[in-house]
Design a protein around this nucleic acid. Structure first.
Length: 580
RNA sequence: GUGCCCGUAGCUCAAUUGGAUAGAGCGUCUGACUACGGAUCAGAAGGCUGCAGGUUCAACUCCUGCCGGGCACACCA
């Protein structure tokens, strides 16, 4: 049970609902001050709001505005001089304003930054907010609620998931969590390439393995170049033999070859994903798409746009009209579709299902694919800027400083399953998400496995567990439930405590940024910093003491840290253990 | 050759998307436990942000040209 939301804390504060509005209040006050300083040519409220930022360093206050830089020139004054005038005017009105209780002072620094410093009670008020909102803290309403289809992993069922897919899975799942947390409507989908050339190749590869096993010939020979060559197919071949007891001629099993490996591999993929705690709302079958006739209909629609032509016996899409660097084949001269064609129909269908935003997560080999896919949707009348294609870059595994070879032999690779077995779900996910998805990722297996403070996952999780033991200690002491009001919270004064308050207040902004940029990794350095601030506090502040008010205040502080760490880890898909 | 991404401390990466004295972790060196979990904490050293120009009040960030690395450039999927 979560201590803070089971009613143990009584909030007597009267400032509970004020905190979120401070920025707006300051915005208004600044506008007034600017109006007096300038007489005409004052910026719009939106411009002022956009000029606010959270200063990197604590000594520059809680909020900072760079508005004067934008308007000093057209007003023929220096930024610094304008800022001073604004400050003067602001100070004069502040005295009589209700803001006086919340804003301690404003200063002009550097070339003209206007910095706002808030009062201790204002800073501490974030604790009320966290206590009352609980697990929903940080969930600010997006300006625009989106209805998003997030497609990710979508690995061909021709082999087990690799580390690369693991990264995509971690990224997609975390993004879904973040977007949902923010209030967007999200549907997750796995596009299953369950028919086509690669499945035919898979069938042929399986047949070869079965034939070799049954006839006991060429068992150690390298499979042909274009076949799937992984050892996993030998296992599948054994299962096939177990089930069908095949005998020559093997042609008669063609249908079984076609589906057996595919379905077995797909169920393995689903199992891996489930163990990685990744779940999809839909699995979308390409085979079903083909049978529905949608591909043909989409082709007809494309033809009507006049962007389709025939040449050299093939059917082409004039994607160059939409910025692609060359036209693309839709139907090969042998009559088969290219890979692109069903995918165009699939994305068209996604838009037609009513989603206003599509997000695809693809591997780095799909880089050149984006332009043509966007071109096709543009041609079909969709807004291509609503299709976001994220390319998750490659993962290199290291163990004790040495690279773990991705392919020692043809068809051999490190699987997601191995990562799960080696380092576990939490560390696996965390490490996959630690870096920007479009940057190459170095994954240190030894570090991920280690249970020392060097390992960022353990460092953060430990902070969460540590709060739990403080709570246990508090209960053991048999103290009354903490009571909190402004007077009690005023006891939080030390730099370590103020640093934590500052970080807690920033959490909502971090979530917004992660959502806007589709970058879950932004939570990682934040959580590391929050955990570090907590450990620092812990080192020289005792929570459970004889001082009743101080105990209340600090209990509120540490449980708030625990709540925010839990929310943050949860958004990454990493567990927040109470004991380790 | 063309297009996209990247070049920041010895190593792995940040930098609020154009803001203030470029920050963390690891590694190196020096310290702290009869206290709620030392699975922790404090301190030091370490930089011409690949190079050269340009735009700006302000450039790691944007523009141009080089140098170095990665990826993509199929009637493959």
């Amino acid at each position: 049970m979560i201590w803070s939301i089971c009613g143990a804390t009584r909030l007597k504060g009267i400032m509970r609902h004020k905190t979120s509005l401070l920025r707006e209040e300051l915005s208004k006050a600044l506008l007034v001050a600017l109006g007096q300083a300038l007489k005409d040519g004052a910026p719009s409220p939106a411009e002022i709001d956009a000029s606010f930022e959270i200063p990197r360093e604590e000594k520059f206050g809680e909020l900072s505005s760079n508005i004067v830089f934008k308007i000093a020139k057209e007003n023929k004054t220096s930024p610094r001089a304008l800022a001073e005038t604004v400050k003067k005017s602001f100070d004069e009105t502040l005295v009589m304003s209700p803001l006086a209780k919340r804003v301690e002072k404003i200063t002009v620094e550097g070339p003209g930054f206007i910095n706002f410093y808030v009062t201790q009670s204002e800073k501490a008020a974030v604790l009320f907010k966290i206590q009352s909102e609980g697990e929903r803290f940080g969930r600010s309403q997006p300006a625009q609620k989106k209805n998003i289809l997030l497609e990710y992993v979508s690995a061909n069922p021709t082999g087990p998931l690799t580390v690369a897919h693991g990264r995509q899975a971690a990224l997609g799942d975390s993004l879904a969590r973040i977007m949902r947390f923010r209030g967007h409507q999200v549907t997750t989908e796995y596009y299953n390439n369950d028919e086509g050339v690669q499945i035919n190749t898979l069938a042929a590869s399986l047949r070869m393995r079965v034939e070799r096993l049954v006839t006991q010939k060429d068992l150690d020979a390298e499979p042909p170049e274009n076949y799937y060559r992984g050892e996993y197919l030998v296992e599948i071949a054994k299962a096939f033999i177990e089930q069908y007891r095949p005998t020559a001629p093997f042609e008669k099993y063609q249908k079984q070859f076609q589906t057996f490996a595919r379905d077995l591999i797909m169920s393995g993929i689903r199992k891996d994903l489930a163990d990685f705690d990744v779940h999809f709302d839909n699995y979308y079958s390409q085979e079903a798409l083909g049978q529905s006739g949608r591909i043909e209909r989409t082709l007809e629609e494309l033809k009507k746009t006049g962007k389709v032509y025939e040449s050299e016996g093939a059917v082409w899409f004039r994607s160059t009209d939409f910025g692609d660097d060359k036209d693309r084949v839709l139907i090969k001269s042998d009559g088969h579709y290219t890979y692109l064609t069903p995918d165009i129909a699939y994305h068209h269908e996604k838009f037609e299902r009513g989603f206003d935003t599509l997000v695809d997560i693809l591997g780095p080999d799909h880089h050149g694919y984006i332009a043509r896919l966007k071109a096709s949707q543009e041609a079909l009348g969709h807004d291509a800027s609503r299709l976001h294609v994220l390319i998750a870059q490659l993962v290199t595994l290291y163990e004790n400083g040495k690279e773990v070879r991705m392919s020692t032999r043809a068809g051999e690779f490190v699987t997601l399953r191995e990562i799960l077995d080696e380092v576990g779900r939490d560390a696996g996910r965390f490490f996959f998400l630690m870096r920007k998805f479009d940057a190459h990722l170095d994954f240190d297996l030894a570090l991920a496995k280690s249970q020392t403070p060097d390992n960022p996952v353990f460092y953060i999780q430990y902070a969460h567990a540590r709060v739990e033991s403080i709570k246990a200690n508090f209960q053991k002491a048999g103290l009354d439930p903490p009571e909190a009001d402004g007077k009690v919270l005023a006891r939080l004064q030390s730099p370590a405590e103020m640093g934590i308050l500052r970080l807690l207040a920033q959490f909502p902004e971090i979530v917004i940024a992660a959502d806007r940029t589709l970058e879950p990794y932004r939570l990682v350095p934040y959580l590391q910093e929050l955990a570090a601030a907590f450990h620092r506090f812990y080192a020289d502040h005792r929570v459970v003491t004889e001082d009743k008010d101080l105990v209340s205040a600090r209990m509120l502080l540490v449980t708030s840290v625990q709540t925010v760490i839990r929310i943050g880890l949860n958004l990454l898909g990493v567990s927040a253990p109470l004991k380790m």
